[in-house]
Computed example of a mutant assay.
Amino acid sequence: MTILTAAAATAVALSAQTAASAAPTTTGQAKAEVNADRTAAAAASEKYDGAQAQEQALQHQVNILQDEIARQQAVINTETTTLGAVASAQYRDGSVDPTVKLMLSANPTEFLTQASSENQVDSNQAALIAQLVAQQHTLAAEKAQAAQELKAQQALLKQMQQAKASINAKLKHAQGILDALTPAQRVVVNAPAGGGGYTPPSSGSSYMSVSQIDLSGISAAARTAMLAAMSKVNVAPYVPGGSGPNQFDCSGLVMWAYAQAGISLPHYSYSDETVGTAVPFSQMRVGDIVVNESGDHVGLYAGKGMLLSAPRPGLTVDIQPLSYFGTIVAVRRF
């Protein structure tokens, strides 16, 4: 017991020492770690959105295939019954028709092919058998495709689970850092990251007021989308997978904003790279969709070098310098 108690005490001491060495030593270090965790969680959220979109599309395909399989099976059942009726009539006349063997066969397709090739059936039955063989092949192909797509769907569901686990782990780590800080330190750590020569206003997190956004000269769709997004600035929080109306992730905000203009967009920042019409980076206008951070982030251009977006966990929908979000990948316009 003494040895076990000593071992347990040593383990606790080592654990505490490790935790202490891993803990941020300054507010600046804490801020950097929390921002890194939140950025990683936001990137994982987009991976989750992408896998979810693909899974939903596959589920739709599987549903269509399953309906077609059911329809094909019903046709095959009807034609098999017809052949069976002919066989029964001939059986009563003293002849055993090959279709009787069909009804008892463990492999109808193989039997039908063989019977047809050996000319063991009359012309009417041959036509029915040929049709039935073709439908059996079609049904088998559809079942194989459905099985393949179900397997792919399971893989996507696994990706979604992994992305969600990554999100939760990053946010839990960030929250652990915040919990160890004083209230004053938490205010500093939670403040938007400075940079690019911009200083956030004291009244809120945005670096630009919505009243400063110039909506003139843009399309009706872009104007509607911008007005919708502007109404969420400093109000709606970032939530992984959020698509509105009161919480968003980055692609969820862009999707929801343009939906108010009747335009359907994917809930995935990487897919936003191909929507609308491509625009040179040098010709960006307010309301353009801007994809950056290697595709992990997307927002709406607010003019004056600013991006209106849902930045990452811990922040609300915000207007921040484009320079905060790395290299621009694509600019798209409606």
Rank of each mutant, 00 (worst) to 15 (best):
F281V: 13
Q17L: 05
L307A: 08
Q17I: 04
D272H: 09
S203Q: 13
D122K: 00
I64D: 12
P237N: 11
E79H: 13
A147T: 02
Y48D: 00
L65H: 07
Y198Q: 11
S45Y: 01
V210M: 11
L253F: 12
S206C: 13
L104H: 00
S205G: 08
V279E: 04
A41H: 04
N124P: 14
Q114T: 15
E118A: 04
L307W: 09
Y324K: 10
S21M: 08
L181T: 13
A191F: 14
A127C: 05
D249C: 04
N77K: 06
S209F: 15
A221Q: 05
P266N: 06
V254M: 00
A53R: 09
E46T: 14
T2W: 08
V62D: 10
K304S: 09
A22W: 12
A220T: 08
V298K: 02
M306P: 01
A141I: 06
L139I: 00
T99R: 11
A13H: 07
G241F: 09
E142M: 13
D122F: 00
Q17K: 08
V133W: 00
P192H: 12
A6E: 12
Q175A: 05
Y207K: 09
K151N: 10
T224K: 02
F111W: 01
V62K: 13
M208H: 14
F325L: 01
L181W: 09
V86E: 11
V286R: 06
Q185C: 09
S88T: 03
S216L: 08
V291M: 02
V121W: 05
Q148S: 01
A115F: 00
M160R: 06
V329C: 01
G196F: 00
V75C: 01
S45E: 10
A6P: 06
V187Q: 07
D214M: 02
Y207I: 11
A126W: 04
L112P: 03
V189M: 11
H60Q: 07
A106W: 14
D272Y: 14
P183G: 12
S117P: 00
T5E: 15
G326M: 06
A30E: 13
